[in-house]
């Protein structure tokens, strides 16, 4: 972890303002180029419909990525987010008949907090390796989702539930609004608050953090709780959007989320992180799918699209 701090310093030292900004935000530049490129080759790209579709498609993954950014910044991994998204999407629909929409959402969030605390306790207190702990947790949660549904897909019978993820405000889907609000909040929390500085310090040098009076174990626990909450929120949104839930909805999402966070400038060895850039990267991913989608009107092109969609998102490779 300490060498992560060394690398971080290397980047900062000796760079002038503009150069530094560009280096740290190269992903925005890539995104800008991608958008220009896409607009040039596809007529449909700049239609309002398409832009909104695209934003909607990236929002849920974007929200998960925001949570993962905290875990990574504190020097850990959270591989359990994909399975937790599946479990949450199932609980929020499966519990509706007994508890109503509100109750189901509340229980889902409570379960996700418990999962986050469990991860956080094992990593922060027991000091077990986060990669293995959350990999194990991923299997546990996946099993729970399968046992709960018996492998079946669940349908929601509560029409009111659809508005949470399916509604829109003045043409802008709620999903996109959630993502934008979450990105702003998380960016403030990570880079402009005492808590955020503690997270980054823990990630860059946990020993130094401890000497500086940071309760490292608690900070680590909190990052896992945040990550779990975003996963649960993502699960609720996905269920609400398609009014059904599959026990494997989030399978394989974890690597996608981590890579998005890392491409956004978060170091996997901790100590560096930004919340707004993951958003940019998600957009880039989304673009890539979109390019092939709007142009594709024959099956052969669709095959390519599927291939690229699958592989870029690394989506099905682990399911």
């Amino acid at each position: 972890m300490s060498s992560g701090a060394v690398e971080a310093q290397k980047v900062v030292v000796g760079k002038t303002g503009l150069r530094k900004f560009l280096e740290q935000n190269v992903i925005l530049l890539v995104l800008f180029i991608m958008i220009v490129f896409m607009a040039a080759i596809s007529d449909d790209f700049f239609t309002t419909d398409n832009i909104i579709n695209l934003l909607r498609q990236i929002s849920i993954l974007g929200i998960l990525t925001l949570g993962q950014t905290f875990v990574l910044s504190a020097g850990n991994f959270d591989l359990s987010v994909g399975a937790l998204l599946s479990l949450a999407s199932i609980l929020v629909i499966g519990l509706q008949p007994e508890l109503g929409v509100g109750g189901a959402i509340a229980i889902t969030l409570v379960v996700s907090i418990l999962v986050g605390l469990c991860n956080g306790w094992l990593v922060g207190r027991v000091k077990a390796n986060s990669f293995i702990v959350t990999l194990g947790m991923m299997s546990l949660l996946q099993a729970a989702a399968l046992v709960f549904t018996g492998g079946m897909t669940l349908q929601s019978q509560e029409p009111s539930f659809a508005t949470i993820g399916g509604g829109s405000l003045g043409g802008m889907p709620y999903l996109v609004l959630y993502f934008v609000i979450a990105a702003i909040l998380f960016q403030l929390l990570l880079n402009h608050s005492v808590f955020g500085r503690k997270v980054l310090l823990t990630g860059s040098n946990s020993v130094a953090a401890r000497f500086a009076g940071v309760k490292v174990g608690n900070i680590v626990s909190w990052t896992f709780v945040i990550s779990s909450l975003t996963a649960a929120f993502g699960g609720i949104l996905i269920s609400s959007r398609i009014m059904s839930a599959s026990p494997t909805a989030g399978a394989g999402m974890e690597l996608d989320v981590i890579s998005a966070a890392v491409l956004g400038g978060t170091s996997i060895y901790g100590g560096e992180g930004r919340a707004y850039n993951p958003g940019a990267w998600r957009t880039y991913f989304g673009d890539y799918d979109e390019l092939h989608d709007t142009d594709g009107d024959s099956v052969s092109v669709s095959d390519d699209d599927e291939r690229i969609g699958l592989t870029v998102c690394g989506w099905d490779r682990f399911s």
Binding site: Q57, D293, D297
Partner: peptide, 16 residues
């Protein structure tokens, strides 16, 4: 007139 891959998946088919 056109075909798209839905990959047996609901969310993917919404997009398609």
């Amino acid at each position: 007139v056109a075909s798209e891959v839905g990959g047996w998946d609901k969310a993917k088919s919404v997009t398609a």
